[in-house]
Design a binder for these strands. Structure first.
Length: 483
RNA sequence: GGAGGCGUAGCUCAGUCGGUAGAGCAACGGCCUUUUAAGCCGUGGGUCGUGGGUUCGAGUCCCACCGCCUUCACCA
């Protein structure tokens, strides 16, 4: 960064142009501008045989080529770009304004639609309106804005200077819409539950703490909506979902942003198998509608989404990749030591999970459902029918990342209350924080249900090939910029 | 929090062994009515992230700090 003095030098030049525009009696910040068509629609609507086709577009000047008495401008709008030809002959009275236009200004232009010698569809402007003056230097026209720091801090510039960034966020929006439509068309009700909670439950994570002044009480930003959505099952909302932010006060990484978007889905009378099918179906639908094929490049990896996706038991994967039997705890502990893990202060289950995470997770590149987790690791999950050591839970891994987590919900209040007291040694956080109102809800009777959570940001990552969560979050958390 | 890397003009980037700070784009002044990252002629632009230190001399070497990236820790 350079001195404010230098920055303002360029700004001053633009301020001077602004003054000259005002001297022409022109308001440099326009108002409502009606009757426009998008750039891409305008171009696709062009007919060669129609010699009197009018067009009207608005957008930001991203390229400007001044040939003297003729200026070519490339306008960028939400849809793409279109060329505007500004001719002195056609714009006699507006020519003075037109000569003052510069990169970054937002203008509206209308006139006859035609083609240039080289065949580019062009609006030959008869009317030009300055809609907003740009007072700061836009980034370089060819390379765009490349500095990662600045791209995140000034996403408002990144979005129009780098069209692929705009594309990605349009895709993100479309994927969320697809998920929403998929669920609502199947009778799911979209709801919103508290983001500020008095007990941060439903997941194992450190919460953010905030304070309500009038009530004079601390509140937690939610780490999960789970316990509230299950209350809705008790209330009779049999198929519900919520798409919203969770907050976890933990480290940042390529896969972790402190606030991230989750969808949670609950279906009464279903179980984790139903949720597994639903997960595979909805992600495949998103892939089909919004991605380039069943194979997606993800950094060094190629993710193959061809169905059916692998479904493998937790214990079998442990055997496969760690080479030890889940029931042979000494073998697992030996493996832990081999991995340089200090297992002495950990409960058996914690050791098993540490070994699992260290040996299995980074092998799971193509979509893989890991099913039947050890029950003690799953205090909110129903045990499997044939073996109480395991819980009816799956996690979906794609590209070495955990994307989804689901289970057959525990609806026995006695077992749930007991599980809320579990604190495994070696676990820093526990998802078993006592919530007695939730127990009360269960005592009224919660239908058996399947529940599912999908990390939306990570889903967008694997579907678009973006390797960093910051590339799929519009405004990722950063420290304040240097002064 | 630990480790490693990066920070040079508005933007994208060069900068050799420690010896007066460079290019392209953008800007400014000219020319140009069919350009496509338009072209041509000319001009200006820098406390090299910040602060110390070593040195006759620091963008370059050393230390601290700030920010970003990667990685580890953390984190289902």
């Amino acid at each position: 960064m350079s001195k404010a003095e230098d920055v303002s030098k360029f700004e001053q030049q633009r301020q001077e142009k602004l003054s000259r525009i005002k001297e022409l009696g022109i308001e440099p910040y326009g108002n409502r501008y009606e009757g426009t068509e998008s750039a891409e629609n305008t171009k696709s609507g062009f007919k060669d045989d129609d010699t009197n086709q009018q067009a009207k577009c608005a957008g930001r000047i991203v390229l400007l080529r001044d040939i003297g008495k003729l200026i070519f401008i490339t306008l960028r709008d939400r849809s793409g770009t279109i060329q505007v030809g500004l001719s002195k002959k056609l714009l006699a009275e507006q020519w003075e304004l037109v000569k003052l236009l510069e990169l970054g200004d937002i203008i509206g232009a209308s006139g006859q639609l035609g083609k240039t010698k080289t065949g580019e569809i062009t609006i030959w402007a008869e009317q030009v309106v300055l809609l907003s003056k740009c007072l700061l230097q836009p980034p370089e026209k060819f390379h765009g804005l490349a500095d990662i720091d600045q791209r995140y801090r000034q996403r408002y510039v990144d979005l129009w200077a780098n069209p692929e960034v705009m594309e990605l966020f349009k895709t993100r929006s479309a994927i969320v819409t697809t998920i929403r439509e998929f669920l609502t068309s199947r009778g799911f009700l979209e709801v919103e539950t508290p983001m500020m909670q008095t007990i941060a439950g439903g997941a194992a994570a450190k919460p953010f703490i905030t304070h309500h002044n009038t009530l004079d009480m601390d509140l937690f930003l939610r780490i999960s909506p789970e316990l509230f959505l299950k209350r809705l099952l008790v209330g009779g909302m049999e198929k519900v979902f919520e798409i919203n932010r969770n907050f976890r006060n933990e480290g940042l990484s390529r896969q972790h942003n402190p606030e991230f978007t989750m969808i949670e889905v609950y279906e009464a009378y279903a179980d984790y198998n139903v949720m597994m099918d639903l997960t595979e179906e909805v992600i495949s639908l998103c892939l089909e509608k919004h991605a380039g094929g069943k194979q997606i490049r993800f950094g060094e990896l190629t993710l193959d989404f061809t169905r059916p996706w692998r479904r493998a038991k937790y214990a079998d994967l442990l055997k496969e990749y760690a080479g030890c039997d889940i029931d042979d705890i000494e073998a697992v502990r030996a493996k832990a030591r081999q991995l340089d893990l200090d297992e002495t202060q950990m409960d058996d289950m914690v050791v098993i999970n540490e070994v699992f995470e260290a040996t299995v997770e980074d092998k799971l590149v193509n979509p893989t459902f890991v099913i039947d987790y050890p029950a003690p690791l799953c205090p909110l999950t129903r045990q499997t029918k044939d073996d109480p050591k395991y819980a009816e839970r799956f996690e979906l891994f794609i590209g070495r990342m955990e994307l989804a987590n689901a289970y057959t919900e525990l609806n026995d209040p006695a077992i749930q209350e007991e599980n809320f007291h579990i604190q495994l040694r070696g676990q820093q956080e526990t998802m078993a924080t006592m919530d007695s109102d939730f127990i009360a809800a269960l005592k009224y009777g919660m239908p058996p249900a399947g529940g599912l959570g999908i990390g939306i940001d990570r889903l967008i990552m694997v579907l678009t090939g973006a390797e960093s969560i910051r590339d799929v979050v519009l405004f990722p958390l950063l420290r304040p910029a240097k002064t």
